[in-house]
Nucleic acid binder design. Sequence first.
DNA 1: AAGGTCGTCAACCGCCGTGAC
DNA 2: CGTCACGGCGGTTGACGACCT
Length: 355
Amino acid sequence: MGRAPCCEKLGLKRGRWTAEEDEILTNYIHAKGEGSWRTLPKNAGLLRCGKSCRLRWINYLREDLKRGNITAEEEQTIVNLHSALGNRWSLIAAHLPGRTDNEIKNYWNTHLSRKLYNFIRAENEAPLPASVITVAADQRKRRGGGRGGVRRPAMKRQKKTTSNIVVEFMSSLNPESTTTSDVVEPSTSKEKERLPGSCLDNTMRMFGACDEGKSVGLCPNKESASSAVVLCPTEKRENESMGPYDWLDGEMMRLSYILDGRVVNPSGNGVVGVNEAVGTEKETASERESSSLSSNAADGELHNCSSSITSVFDDEWLDWNWVNGGVECHHQWELWNEGDNTFSRLWGAEKIEEE
DNA sequence: AAGGTCGTCAACCGCCGTGAC
DNA sequence: CGTCACGGCGGTTGACGACCT
């Protein structure tokens, strides 16, 4: 049971706005300014719900809206940001001046998700993350015929990014483009909570999965302590000036990548012991919680690992420490199940300052 | 030519966070 | 601290035009 309707619906007009209504609303806002949406319709003489007025103004009537088709550059930005932020359309829209969240959402649902689906189908190689297939297939399914389509069950909130696939998909859209960087300001406490960057402190840089020299993820902006989206081939990113945290890039390259739920150290030492526990899908959280590992690994490899599990949005998180170049480091992994598969991803790495 | 199907996107709905009281 | 109003957000619907058979 939700809240009561925001206004008395009886007698209020619904559906498409007429040019006359648009003019009334525009003139009123020009005279009185935005806000007080609840009382605005009455004061302006509109037989509309306040919410409807607000939506009409924000999504259509505002002067600063950019008209016309989404450009290739904007499309690129949308794909980049969606890969990192998921369906947080308002956040994505904040990075596209003149575009509204509704516009971007529609564009994604009608253009990009299908492109993504077709791209995935064309690739047709390794098994794909279930979340990608589900979203894309669901999108096709709703084209069931007739106007308005078929009501579909509420889509599960997207918790996972589909980084690698999206990176490659993005490259297929525009092979020339390699880097996008933006600042993301989480606006609400919930938003802050949901941003990966908030899982750890501001000294930590967040990355999604690395694959074939590419990486995607979030990292805090060291000046503003906000999160920045970085999406580019790793080799290019390494050439950028990233401030005092540059050492992590090389570390990321050495450290690990993920195959079939097993964490692998590409430096030549193969599967790291702790992954036996992490990658076993039947293992319970409590078993993982109690697991720990100590090794005599040389500097630069995993060392003094310990794990702890916390639950964040139905996922499990594994923290461990290791020594890199004599510096104690902390890494955090996200673990989740999709169907019969267990996936894991390195989310963060930080240098632990000695007190 | 007509009816069916598909694609687009404006608009609506329900829920949530926040601030005022 | 609890309640309420409000604004905002993301998911979904449905009108409408284009396209297909």
